[in-house]
């Protein structure tokens, strides 16, 4: 079965591995990692400059053709997230925005309430809004109604590499969302990325696991393969299910 790619806003992504720019030992690795992974979207963050030292310009490491996904990390309220989003767009980063509002410094859990508020405003503003949330089905429906382009549930807390701890909850989103579901955060190993794709996630976002690997370039490649395998498995399963669906008579109808 052919994969027609993942459409977000006006852009179609044929590679379903999204990556991040955080935690690399050296930013020089990023373009190489993007090449081996084939990732077509990568996150960046916005910060006040450090006036004591020279700040590296992260954007210079991201080749043309790779979509920038600025995040609103650091925001603790909807208003702060909205401000960061607008600054990023003004600065030429395009219309994509990952809303990340975190008020909990211990577990770094996203604040679903503030995220919903920011989504409502930014979607109206014309952003392609990708809210990073705890997987919560009613919230996902609200985000959808508010105009979110996708839902980005966490698999496990940021940077923990614990994988799909929230699997059953993500499964509910996948089953019920009208918009794509992109698993973000917690994915520490390619097998976990494959599992997420196999269960029907539309994409995964992996940063820490690639950036902090001994060889991030090779690990980017590994994740890319895992995502492809998981996606292919999901599509293969879907083909099987459609056979059942086509047999429209119920299994126990013969008893009537």
């Amino acid at each position: 079965m052919n994969d027609e790619g993942l459409r977000l806003g006006d852009t179609t992504f044929t590679n379903r591995l999204f990556t991040g720019t955080g935690k690399f030992a050296s930013n020089e690795i990023i373009p190489e990692m993007l090449e081996t992974s084939g990732s077509q979207m990568i996150t960046v963050a916005l910060r006040r400059i450090d006036m004591q030292s020279v700040t590296d310009n992260i954007l210079q490491y991201i080749p043309d053709g790779v979509t920038l996904l600025p995040n609103t990390s650091g925001a603790r309220t909807a208003e702060q997230a909205i401000r960061v989003a607008r600054i990023a767009r003004e600065a030429g980063c395009g219309k994509f925005i990952k809303i990340e509002v975190i008020t909990d410094a211990k577990y770094l859990m996203p604040d679903n309430h503030e995220t919903l508020r920011a989504t409502e405003t930014l979607a109206k503003d014309g952003f392609v809004v990708l809210p990073y949330v705890l997987p919560d089905l009613p919230l996902a429906k609200r985000l959808e109604n508010a105009g979110a382009a996708a839902i980005m549930p966490l698999g496990a807390p940021i940077g923990t590499n614990r994988g799909l701890e929230t699997k059953p909850l993500i499964a509910m989103l996948i089953e019920n969302s009208a918009v794509p579901v992109i698993v973000d955060a917690g994915i520490g190993f390619p097998s976990q990325a494959a599992a997420a794709m196999e269960m029907g996630a539309d994409a995964v976002l992996v940063n820490t696991a690639i950036a902090t690997a001994e060889d991030p370039v090779a690990m980017g490649h590994a994740f890319s393969l895992a995502v492809q395998a998981g996606r292919a498995a999901y599509l293969a399963e879907a083909a099987g299910q459609s056979v059942v669906a086509r047999a429209s008579s119920p299994l126990t109808g013969f008893l009537d």
Binding site: G20, T21, L46, R48, M51, L59, P70, A91
Partner: peptide, 26 residues
């Protein structure tokens, strides 16, 4: 303020200026 307008943007006492840049992040 876009870069081309920096020269034309006059500062006044108590103005707030934020200097930001893109950095690595997930």
């Amino acid at each position: 303020i876009r870069q081309e307008l920096w020269a034309k943007t006059r500062l006044q006492d108590q103005d707030q200026v934020e200097l930001l840049s893109f950095v690595g992040g997930g």
